[in-house]
Design a protein around this nucleic acid. Structure first.
Lengths: 343, 343
DNA sequence: TTGAAAGCGCTAACAC
DNA sequence: GTGTTAGCGCTTTCAA
């Protein structure tokens, strides 16, 4: 049986055939293909021509078998639960990764890993050497996956600062702290003095850092009332949190929400409570998502350079693969406050 | 040189070692691993034990080399320009694909392919047999990629009905026509009689079919004014289109937009024009994206079962790979109208 | 600078 | 049923 139903096109030319065509040995062709410098100019030409003529492309499996490299990296989207991304995120990240990897022979493998079973599958894959490296995104703080993978000796990079730094696992992240601080300072400079924040989950660094940024912006300022409500990054929870804040301090005049979705929820709660935005209460979100542009009023929001984050993630991973014992510093990319109507 | 800086863990056990441990031949172990039935129960046990004891996992490269299978499928995200997905889409699709592939030995490779150069790279990859099959999403109608790939003999499936049916390339799609019809009928049943639509690009089937659905809903109805404006699925263009419609017929009382983003844009234009929604003008979108839940008023919208579309895409591709000459019918999945505040 | 040759780990055809 | 064996296409010493 020729395998389960494969009907592949005519067999592709092999090194052997190229060698015959060029009148040299297999070894020499291999050297040319792999860019070895120890080949005479004449031979090089000869082989190149043969390659072009035959349309030769190396067989990846054969190469892998001997090099023990797979030329594949794995992107693990480690969502716990049904939590989804707000728009620009997954797409932007993948686009960046893709772009950067296109300059290398590396392929991008993708796996969703929400369940424990899927996590295990990822570990298997990596342990068994099916990939050269792994990039993890959307981790919760306590996820043991990156540590395990790194312990298994695999090159690992993560998107988003881990709650506890993991030795040997570099990360790329937006400057959440600075972004949140900028947003909060913007509110303060508008003269707002009863400022609330709706935080993200405090087991994720994005949540932690954005709260820290809020605090930092207001640190040492006198005459400012600070309010904090916990959220889960989702819209419904943002709405609930806003209601609670309003109950706690009906006179609050500004809110920084750690995500656009929560900010959108807050907007609903504020409207329901009869508060005008931005006149009575100014609102700032985080992410600069599609949602931000389409609420009423449109959300002022903090933008993260998502695509560039993907690029840096790829770069980090590539370094890690090629020089596993080199120390790699985290990459923190700047954020930007985009002012729209809500603040 | 042991390859560029690899420092892989201790070499994994091979078939050979398992065979030695179990006291059988390599061939027998291979049969067990590949689930051949022609193995005695006793031998089976013996081999299984040896596998477990050694923690044996087949070497994919070696296997690939002889079977000429890669056990990899490629997902090509073929965006022209900077067009992005509205939220649930990419993530949902990938989640579905991922889920379904998890039941097979197939890996999911991802490539963004916006530029011509990238398209070429995809063709290369496929032609050179680096993947067993290809799923394409986000195609414009005139994209030659699926046809080329299919012509090269690769199993290909696409998401979204191609404008011109491609022989041998099955597709999965949401029932755009029925969805659009339901939305439009809903408006009609509310008593609206001057009904507009903002279409998607007419070189994409989603755009074409949603317009067709609009037309079908109103077909044969008397006393209904129909208005059509072209959009590009984006928000800004939705806003522009709405302004034009308003200029064309200031008394229009309903709009069906072929995307939530355009509907959101329409909402802005309507507000600017002083029209109340839904009282003066009812608005329905398409996609049930994050945006729909967060506009003011929240958008009534048509939901597509994105994750299931991903699953079906995977199923189709798997069939195509295992039985290349079997005819496969397209899969059309039902949509659902979600009523919120805007209509 | 080049050629020869030894595998990498596995499957599948064939023989027993 | 099971063992034997011939490759799959490539990289990489080792010699020349």
């Amino acid at each position: 049986m020729p395998g389960p139903g494969r009907a592949r096109a005519a067999r592709r030319p092999t090194l052997e055939q190229v060698a015959a065509e060029a009148g040299v040995s297999r070894g020499t062709v291999s050297r040319v293909v792999n860019g070895s410098l120890e080949v005479s100019a004449k031979t090089l030409r000869l082989v190149q021509d043969a390659i072009d003529k035959l349309g030769y492309v190396p067989n990846q499996a054969a190469r892998s078998l001997v090099t023990r490299r797979t030329d594949t990296v794995l992107l693990v989207v480690s969502e716990s639960e049904a939590r989804v991304f707000t728009e620009p995120f997954l797409g932007g990240l993948v686009r960046g990764l893709s772009q950067e990897l296109a300059t290398t022979p590396l392929q991008l493998n993708l796996m969703m890993a929400s369940t424990a079973r899927q996590h295990e599958r990822v570990e298997q894959l990596v342990r068994h050497g099916h990939v050269d490296g792994v990039a993890l995104i959307s981790l919760h703080g306590d996820d043991p996956l990156p540590r395990n993978l790194a312990a298994a000796g695999a090159p690992v990079v993560v998107n988003g600062r881990p709650v506890i730094e993991i030795p040997g696992v570099p990360y790329v992240d937006a400057d959440n702290l600075a972004g949140a601080r900028a947003a909060t300072e913007y509110l303060y400079r508008q003269g707002r003095r009863r400022i609330a924040t709706i935080t993200g989950p405090q087991d994720m660094c994005a949540g932690i850092d954005r709260l820290a940024g809020f605090r930092a912006a207001l640190k040492g300022r006198r005459g400012v009332t600070r309010l904090v409500a916990q959220g889960d990054f989702g819209q419904a929870d943002g709405e609930r949190a806003m209601r609670e804040l309003l109950a706690e301090d009906p006179r609050l005049d500004a809110v920084f929400a750690a995500s656009d979705l929560m900010a959108a929820g807050a907007l609903r709660a504020l409207r329901a409570a009869g508060r005008g935005v931005p006149d009575d209460v100014a609102v700032v979100g985080f992410d600069d998502s599609d949602v931000a542009r389409n609420t009423d009023p449109a959300l002022t929001s903090v933008r993260q350079p998502v695509q560039q984050m993907g690029r840096e993630l790829a770069r980090l991973l590539i370094s890690r693969i090629s020089r596993p014992d080199q120390e790699l510093a985290p990459v923190i990319l700047p954020t930007e406050l985009l002012c729209r109507e809500s603040a």
